[in-house]
Design a protein around this nucleic acid. Sequence first.
DNA 1: TTGAAAGCGCTAACAA
DNA 2: TTGTTAGCGCTTTCAA
Lengths: 341, 341
Amino acid sequence: MSDSTDKRRRPLTLRDVSEAAGVSEMTVSRVLRNRGDVSEATRQKVLEAARRLGYVPNKIAGALASQTVNLVAVIVPSLSNLVFPEVLAGISEVLDETPLQPVIGVTQYQPEREERVLYEMLSWRPSGVIVAGLEHTEAARAMLKAADMPIVEIMDSDGEGVDSVVGISHRRAGRMMGEAIVENGYRRIAFLGSKMPLDHRARKRFEGFTEALAKAGIEVADREFYEGGSGLVKGREMTETVLRRTPDLDFLYYSNDLIGAGGLLWCLEQGIDVPGQVGLAGFNGLRLLDGLPKKLATMDACRAEIGREAARIVVERAHGVRIELEPRLEPGDTLIRPRGA
Amino acid sequence: MSDSTDKRRRPLTLRDVSEAAGVSEMTVSRVLRNRGDVSEATRQKVLEAARRLGYVPNKIAGALASQTVNLVAVIVPSLSNLVFPEVLAGISEVLDETPLQPVIGVTQYQPEREERVLYEMLSWRPSGVIVAGLEHTEAARAMLKAADMPIVEIMDSDGEGVDSVVGISHRRAGRMMGEAIVENGYRRIAFLGSKMPLDHRARKRFEGFTEALAKAGIEVADREFYEGGSGLVKGREMTETVLRRTPDLDFLYYSNDLIGAGGLLWCLEQGIDVPGQVGLAGFNGLRLLDGLPKKLATMDACRAEIGREAARIVVERAHGVRIELEPRLEPGDTLIRPRGA
DNA sequence: TTGAAAGCGCTAACAA
DNA sequence: TTGTTAGCGCTTTCAA
């Protein structure tokens, strides 16, 4: 009676397996970690006992004793952005070949949240940290500097990192797109992006973009910023707003593909000739949207590649590595004007 | 010289703070956890010392000593599916108000991977497990049963769970959509979905769907399955294929909104009257796609709500709870035929 | 090939 | 309000 009421209150320990198998805890530990020499006979005995009891090792105790944790902290601003899951996929791809495991933290683009998440994660003493962006609170930067493990700041290479850095230059990406737009003869150019002052990468793209225009003696003819989650609807609305306000625009540069796609759909619906009348470009190279009526010009941000490289650095316990990847311009159907247009 | 070379090899411990602040380790521990009565004076002393040294507590040791871990294991098939980040958002929303933190594991729809991820996570002795789906390997189910913590299986309520279950009935969702389609007078109906034999929820929707049609004496007129990541392109291709093969179809039911959107775009491009000539419906209620030329009929899967309820169960340490949410049919513009059509 | 002892860094429980 | 003691469940190290 009492037997069944208090069944499995105390979680199983190594000792339970040790007793069930009739060997020392140490031997059980060795078998379960495939370490050291254990005779095949005892090995089987232990394995069988562990399986029968349903024993799951306690990594907390193991980590404390061995002073090693196979966790890699990965800190990103958002998961709904579509971009970050791709980075995570790149990271997993590499870590899957190793004993390391990613642990994901989300900051929602808030520096204080990032600081808290980082603190939480560091308190588990991971084997490395991969964090999006170069901008952190002072305290966060101090923690990263003090942490005795590989730190990789990803996505952005415009600035100084704490340890290793893997990313693209968003300033340069913006500049490249600006140049391509100018080269294609557009002159009345608008920028449509998020209002988020904390999306530093979008900001840097905007800076590089205006810089490129300035070199050609052009100023941004109009700009529009939105708040709240992106999406096709936002793109439509912004596009309508900006084209109403400045009807002679001949190019719209969007800070991401999703709002760009919304804009594209709106233009096509309105019977606007794209790119004859108005050219369009986004950013990110989302394959997801490939099936739109026209392929939006965009720039690939090398997301999976960034994830893979960052993971490699952690796996190799490297420090001070700096990898700047090359963003690729994908002109699609909305940038290059047909001859004679 | 040697001072600077071996700086900060040994991570800081409570003892370092204790010495720096001139109080016992226990007092430092109390301050850092806001526990027990500590005079404001010592409190400040400790805080200042901890901050100056850059001390980050070791949760591994803490967890081992206190036998509590404020981690909640969350296991999902994929992050690129768009659906799961929304569930995670619901979970975070609730956990944010508590000391609990979600830790995410991804299985890629592979049962063996799920088993491994689960084993890894359980070995950290989390405060609860939230796992997508009711289908698991036998070993995984055994682990879940043996684990002495709240277990919540989410997304699906068609079947028995190990402990708590929060989800919708996908069979019912498929049936509801099938009924709505029949009621609207469609008779030549096709199903377009993923080939994944392991996407049990899509399978159940299909089953409920055919069941509803059967009740009306209708059989699925054609079906098409795809492999590989979804996306607009896949939807276009499948739609073309199926309409070529069976030109007299008057309705296409897609297993998710993204391929449905691709199909919608293709139909509109071809000058097909939607829903006059062909009606369309997807599944999920992705707000992301709201800006399409027409609003695709779909069914909301209550993703955020599912996340919130699951998190609540873990927070309340509840067991054996069963919550079946009501999927909502969103007819959009592609299901209800205009009068006289 | 196996086992015994010591201790990882912290906190529960109790004492002062 | 503060300190002391004794582990938490495992692994490292050394001995047999």
